[in-house]
Amino acid sequence: MTSLPKIVHLLDDLSIGGVTRNLALFQHPALQRHYECSSEEVHPDWSIAPKMNAAVIVVHFSMSWKTLPFLYSLAARNAQARLVLVEHSYSREWENLYVADQTRFRSMLKLAHRMFDRVICVSDAQAGWLEESTGLRAPKRQTIYPWSDMQGLAQLPRPHFSLKAPLIIGAYGRFVEDKGFERLIGAINALGDQQAVGLLLGGFGPDEDKLRRLAGSNSNISFYGQIDRVDDFLAKCDLVAVPSKFETYGLVATEARMAARPILVSGVGGLSEQVGEAGMVTDFGDEKATVKLLENIRHLPLVKMSVSGRDACLDITEHRIESWLQLLGDIASSRTMPRAA
């Protein structure tokens, strides 16, 4: 019996939610018919990388000056393998927020990219930024949107958008400043005693006490707690807001669309690419504009947004599998392609 080519996914933390959920795709029978897939936790700040019996090694951790020796070692000790980077971490907005020395940061990215046969961007916005900032071009650069196991979301009943009850806007994720939840709370507080809109926050994190203090005694704001089942959380929501200050892609918006929940998203990273007729892009940094949107939320074509969002996601698993099979087939047939190209 002929053994299948092996794909090893390298992470520096197997507990990272979105990245780990994305890797569940490789357990799908349509991929397992062609490849043997596994995941391994590594320490990329070490200078020596492990030697692996793999045809393809897919790297999911963030690039930095500290990881460069590991990457050089990974390439040298696994010369038989094709190396692929999935760029989960960086975006134009992230760079603007956190990078003081842009030239040095971009030089690091260029050096890191030289180690890989392919660099997978998770949104077209990210791909455009990397081409502009580092010269990374196709075919070495490709875009494949992330995936999440959305079992149960497609079966959720669509919201009723009842006129007799407040519309519940859900927002969920890790409670950190980057997610922008405080901006949503500020807008709900600014609505005053208006009962037309409520906010349900799901998740946990270091900013939870801060968010609870900001919410105060506002009865229109409630906290769900840790989310173990996304479908249970989304069943309690009529819409979903993603007020992030940066996102490379934003799986929350995909999950919300699959659940037939209209989305209100920041215009950052891959979020705006997901909207189409499923929702709206808004500037959550502008509290007055956000308040006005919430005051007029029932004037939006909510039913059409609900239907359009789900329809756009129904073939998402097949599309992601097809994209990965195409990529893996391409790199298998171009083994002589220099990594520095």
Rank of each mutant, 00 (worst) to 15 (best):
Q155P: 00
L136Q: 06
M150Y: 10
F204I: 09
P206L: 14
G205C: 12
P166G: 04
S219C: 13
I185T: 01
E131L: 11
E131W: 07
E208F: 05
V197P: 02
E131Q: 13
K179E: 00
P206N: 13
E131V: 07
I188W: 00
G192C: 09
K210C: 05
S133W: 08
E131R: 14
D193S: 14
A165F: 09
G192R: 10
I144T: 07
I221Y: 01
L200V: 12
R174C: 00
G202F: 03
Q195I: 14
S222Q: 13
P159M: 06
D209W: 09
G192K: 08
F175E: 01
L199W: 06
G180E: 05
F181L: 13
L153P: 02
F175P: 03
T143S: 05
L184I: 10
G192A: 09
D149E: 15
V197A: 00
L136S: 04
N218C: 06
E131S: 12
P159W: 01
Q155F: 03
P157I: 14
I168W: 08
Y172A: 14
A187P: 02
A138Q: 15
I169W: 02
R213H: 15
K164E: 15
E177Y: 11
T143I: 05
I188Y: 00
E132M: 14
A154S: 11
R183G: 01
V176D: 00
E132G: 07
A154N: 04
P139G: 11
Q151H: 13
